[in-house]
Design a protein around this nucleic acid. Structure first.
Lengths: 201, 201, 201, 201
DNA sequence: TTCTAATCGAGACGGTACGTCACGTCTTACG
DNA sequence: CGTAAGACGTGACGTACCGTCTCGATTAGAA
């Protein structure tokens, strides 16, 4: 006995993809993660919460990880975009502080932590996560660094990737271990890793 | 008629805890994680592999996380103990290199990554992981730093915890993202974070 | 979150098969068929109604058809056993009337009709149905006929199987087409098929 | 440039019903039933096989049962029409043999068995099946019998419907149980059910 | 000739049931 | 008692069809 009784629901849109369903899924996934944690983030729960059929989710997303990636990519660009337009030492500092704030205080930051975690458990997640998030983001960061170096804004001791990991790693590690970022940590990291030694007092 | 023994594989031992069963569980968990990843690490699979009843696992371990913690604690102490006896700048460097090697090249290192990951998904895991592993270890590291400072071996710019996170964070982050630690990264981190500025050339 | 909340249910019996669960499944299947028809006879519905896990059903029955067969075999023997002990013309007549009554008026008769039906749709059902029900039953009927012939009680014109089908076929066909068995039909069939021609008036 | 025709398989015909689609559905249903059994006879499979949209099926047929009925009615009339024009004992015998052949050896006979079966599972099917097939057919058979009686061709002991069921029942029952009709069965049934007793030797 | 209406293929949609897997709890029988 | 074995209720998995719906293209017959 399929969809016999229907008082009035969202009339779906026919043979083209239903944008309302897409957004409902994204928000349901976000909300469930924030409210009840990754353990409650099952496809069935997302479908239930979004008022959507499971098949609709499987039709458009290969796994729940891709749902999270969709929201993360959008949120990251909105909340802490990489300053690729004429980056300065100051804008790089702002970027890292923004990143730290996102991870520590923004509910959406849990999505990034959950994806890092899930990537440890599942190779497919690791692949998607690198290709769709870490890779593109790191490319922008390299670009940012290169321009800042050329403009004489910064002068790192390490290669670009190592520099970024040395900056970002401690922030991520603090978030993963559930501790807050102590004041001064980011600024000190920037000073010792990006500032030419001669500028040390 | 002495050696009538064993169509039964391992005759169980009666009313005291069976050490053979304990070890079989630990090794089965380790092996499964190494061979098939965290996804294959189910209680049923561990029991199957160890030739043990599920109930025996549930009797002694509250969750599979505790099994992993048991092996991790033992392996960490064996593979890269914190140099708390008269630590020098050199022994600290050795400790960090040991840590990096454990994470990158030792199969047992996967256990640590898996626990960091699982702690993101489940608050109970996070609690156990901190209380049984991260906390004690960090206490030793603080001790190590304090002694090294007092001995004039190092002179960090940041507070002890921040210093350790700044050193350890990049290593962990590299491992979590599946990339190798570039040569020079650890040494540079030590130099800029632990060495008094006057000793910079 | 598995079986956390349990006020008080049927305490199951451990590592031996739970007879209460077995009976609950059998009765649930019977009731669902009688009340809502074969369309409502899903494994999920049976499990729900019986208060039993789906897995428990799959553990013991390869398909819902075998559940129905279990009940049918038991009911048939109880409601209209084949008169194999010294059958007479009269007891054979009673047997056929009993069969007709079972098909037409007994709710359990629906099970037989449903199995005949399902056997048309699925070869596996056909196989089980023949091996577990039709075959054994027919063997008894052949036995009944043979003894009755030897005793001079009946004297059929057709071979045993053909005789039984000629007697049983019209009854089953009436039931399948949802019409009642008209009075006199069975007696006339017996007269013309089992009685020697010379005894026709 | 005349025969530029058809990368498009079947260009549909506009605002009137597409006869080609109708036939494609009928044949697809028949073929699927014959090749893979009733279990494979889903609306989606029919649509797929016929190269037709599901909606086109739902527009013209209330259910897959009606599709089968459409083919059955046509095939029955073609393969074994009821001899209503001056029926004789001989033409009635021929009709029953034709019916038996249809059920046992004609692939289209599976359709009738499938409908008898489905009628047990679903009341709607039962209703349609009686109104569109069994009822009209039985009316013709009654007519046939009445004429044959009036002409002195036959002289049944039972009422017309009972007579027909007594003749047809064994044939159907044999088919339903997947056994062949033994030679002599039909002729004997006719003899004992339709022939006046005085004509028995 | 242009407009209107019905039909067609395609396929997205909210659902239900499928059969499988692992969960954590339990009971049994053995040593 | 601890153990191996495994049945149990629960619930998520990913798949198949259900019957409804909306689309854009196609093709009549009416205006």
């Amino acid at each position: 006995m399929p969809a016999t009784s229907s008082p009035r629901r969202r009339p779906h849109s026919g043979s083209r993809r239903d944008e309302a369903a897409r957004l409902a899924v994204l928000h349901a996934a976000d909300d469930l993660l924030a409210e009840h944690g990754f353990g409650a983030l099952t496809i069935e729960a997302i479908a239930r919460r979004a008022g959507v059929a499971k098949q609709t989710i499987y039709r458009w997303w290969p796994s729940k990880v891709e749902i999270l990636l969709d929201t993360l990519i959008e949120d990251s660009e909105k909340r802490f975009p990489v300053p690729v337009e004429k980056p300065t030492a100051e804008s790089i500092r702002g970027y890292l502080h923004g990143f730290a704030r996102f991870l520590s205080h923004d509910p959406a930051g849990k999505v990034l932590l959950a994806l890092i975690a899930e990537a440890q458990h599942d190779p497919g997640t690791a692949k998607s996560f690198h290709e769709r998030y870490l890779g593109p983001r790191r490319a922008q960061e390299r670009d940012m660094l290169a321009q800042a170096i050329e403009a004489g804004e910064v002068s790192p001791e390490l290669a670009p990737d190592a520099t970024m990991d040395a900056l970002v790693g401690p922030i991520v590690y603090r978030a993963l271990t559930g501790t807050s970022i102590p004041p001064g940590l980011i600024d000190t990291l920037i000073e010792v890793l990006l500032t030419p030694r001669s500028k040390h007092p």
